[in-house]
Amino acid sequence: MVVGSISHDIETPLEAKRLWNAFVKDGHNLLPKQAPELFASVTFLQGEGGVGSIKQINFTPANKDFSYVKEKVEEVDEEKFVYRYSHVEGGLLGKKVSSATYEFKYTPKPEGGCICSSVVHFDSLPGVPQDEEKVKEIKEMSTALFKKIEAYLIANPNLYC
Rank of each mutant, 00 (worst) to 15 (best):
S7C: 07
G112Y: 02
L93T: 08
A22V: 06
Y83N: 11
D9T: 13
N58D: 15
K96T: 13
P61I: 03
L92P: 00
W20G: 05
A35Y: 04
E132P: 03
D26M: 00
F66Q: 09
I57C: 12
K147Y: 01
V69M: 10
V119G: 04
V135G: 02
K139R: 12
Q46P: 00
E79W: 01
F122G: 10
V119I: 15
L19K: 05
I115Q: 02
P108T: 07
S67T: 15
F59C: 03
Q56R: 15
K17W: 00
E79F: 06
Y102T: 13
E37C: 02
V42H: 09
A62H: 07
E75N: 12
G27Y: 08
K55D: 02
L30Y: 06
P110Y: 02
V42P: 02
G52N: 07
F146M: 04
Q130K: 07
S67H: 10
T43G: 03
H87A: 11
C114W: 00
Q34V: 07
D65H: 10
I57G: 01
L145A: 04
T107V: 13
A144G: 07
K64A: 14
A62C: 09
E75I: 14
K147L: 14
K72L: 03
G90N: 11
S142G: 01
A40N: 15
F39I: 14
V128A: 05
S98P: 00
F39C: 01
E133Y: 02
I57L: 12
K17Q: 14
V42E: 04
G47T: 05
E48S: 15
D77C: 08
N63V: 12
N63R: 13
E111V: 08
P61L: 02
G52M: 09
I6D: 13
K139M: 09
V73I: 15
P108M: 09
I57K: 02
V97H: 03
